[in-house]
Simulated scan of single mutants.
Amino acid sequence: MLDTVGPEIQVHNSTGGAIELIGGNHVTITPDLSKAPSADILPIKFGDLAKVVKKGDTLFIGQYLFTGSETTSLWLEVTETSGAEVICYVKNTATLSGPIFTLHVSQVHISMPTLSEYDKQL
């Protein structure tokens, strides 16, 4: 038996610094890892997000799924896609810290393997 979290999309914070996102603003999620992470743009390690989400879909970023009481997880709503980028409305104010954050997509099938190469080695 193997316990995995399933497919994970990682937000890559190359600076490692804290990123504060303010509720009511917009943020662009991009697969372009050369872009510097900020309150305006979050690079991810997955190129097909814009192909699987649509306007109104919910995204969560952070260590925990959003409960509404913590300030370290982010709740986003997709407003549009543009090429490979996903533009989202920021639903709450939160500060993301650390080099990598997990992005969860609510009720959308992500075409990533459930078992990573690391999982297969275990």
Rank of each mutant, 00 (worst) to 15 (best):
Phe66Ser: 07
Phe66Met: 04
Ile22Phe: 11
Lys35Tyr: 00
Gly23Met: 04
Pro113Asp: 06
Glu20His: 10
Ser73Trp: 08
Leu65Trp: 06
Leu49Phe: 00
Asn92Ile: 02
Gly23Tyr: 01
Gly47Cys: 01
Gly68Pro: 01
Ile22Pro: 06
Pro7Lys: 10
Asp3Ile: 11
Asn25Asp: 13
Gln107Lys: 14
Gly62Asp: 02
Ala94Glu: 06
Ser82Leu: 08
Lys91His: 12
Phe66Pro: 05
Thr79Cys: 03
Val27Cys: 11
Cys88Pro: 12
Pro31Trp: 01
Lys45Met: 14
Glu85Lys: 10
Pro31Asp: 04
Thr102Trp: 13
Pro113Trp: 05
Gln107Val: 06
Gln121Val: 00
Thr81Asn: 06
Trp75Val: 00
Lys35Leu: 14
Glu20Ser: 13
Val105Arg: 09
Thr81Lys: 07
Gln107Ile: 10
Leu103His: 09
Leu65Thr: 03
Ile44Asn: 10
Thr79Pro: 02
Leu115Met: 11
Asn25Tyr: 06
Leu122Trp: 02
Lys51Leu: 08
Leu49Asp: 07
Thr28Val: 15
Thr102His: 15
Ser73Gln: 07
Pro113Glu: 05
Trp75Thr: 02
Asp57His: 06
Gln107Tyr: 14
Leu2Thr: 09
Ile61Arg: 11
Gly62Leu: 05
Trp75Gln: 14
Lys54Glu: 05
Thr58Cys: 02
Glu80Cys: 02
Ser111Pro: 12
Pro37Glu: 01
Ser82Val: 04
Leu42Ala: 06
Asn13Thr: 01
Val11Thr: 06
His26Thr: 10
Tyr89Cys: 03
Ile9Pro: 09
Gln10Tyr: 14
Glu8Trp: 07
Thr114Arg: 15
Phe101Trp: 11
Gly6Glu: 12
Val108Lys: 10
Thr114Lys: 15
Leu59Phe: 01
Glu80Asn: 08
Ser38Val: 00
Leu122Glu: 03
Asp40Thr: 03
Phe46Gly: 02
Thr114Gln: 15
Ser14Val: 00
Glu85Cys: 04
Cys88His: 05
Leu59Gly: 03
Glu20Gly: 00
Ile29Arg: 13
Ile29Gly: 13
Ser116Met: 09
Lys45His: 12
Gln63Ser: 07
Glu8Arg: 15
Ile61Phe: 10
Thr4Asn: 12
Pro31Val: 02
Ile29Met: 11
Gln10Lys: 15
Leu115Phe: 12
Leu96Trp: 10
Lys54Asp: 04
Leu59Ala: 01
Ile100Met: 13
Tyr89Ala: 14
Lys45Val: 03
Glu8Gly: 05
Ala50Pro: 03
Ser116Pro: 09
Pro37Phe: 04
Thr114Ala: 14
Ile110Ala: 08
Thr30Asn: 07
Val78His: 12
Asp32Leu: 05
Val53Gln: 03
Val86Trp: 03
Tyr64Gly: 04
Lys54Ala: 08
His12Ile: 12
Val105Lys: 12
Lys91Asn: 12
Asp57Trp: 00
Val5Pro: 01
Gln10Val: 08
Glu70His: 11
Ser14Trp: 04
Ile87Met: 08
Ile87Val: 15
Lys120Phe: 00
Phe60Gln: 14
Leu122Lys: 15
Val105Tyr: 08
Glu80His: 06
Lys55Tyr: 01
Ile87Gln: 12
Thr95Ile: 07
Leu74Phe: 06
Gly83Trp: 04
Ala50Arg: 02
Lys35Ser: 05
Leu49Asn: 07
Gln10Leu: 14
Lys51Tyr: 00
Leu21Trp: 07
Asp48His: 12
Lys91Phe: 03
Val86Lys: 08
Gly17Cys: 04
Tyr118Ala: 13
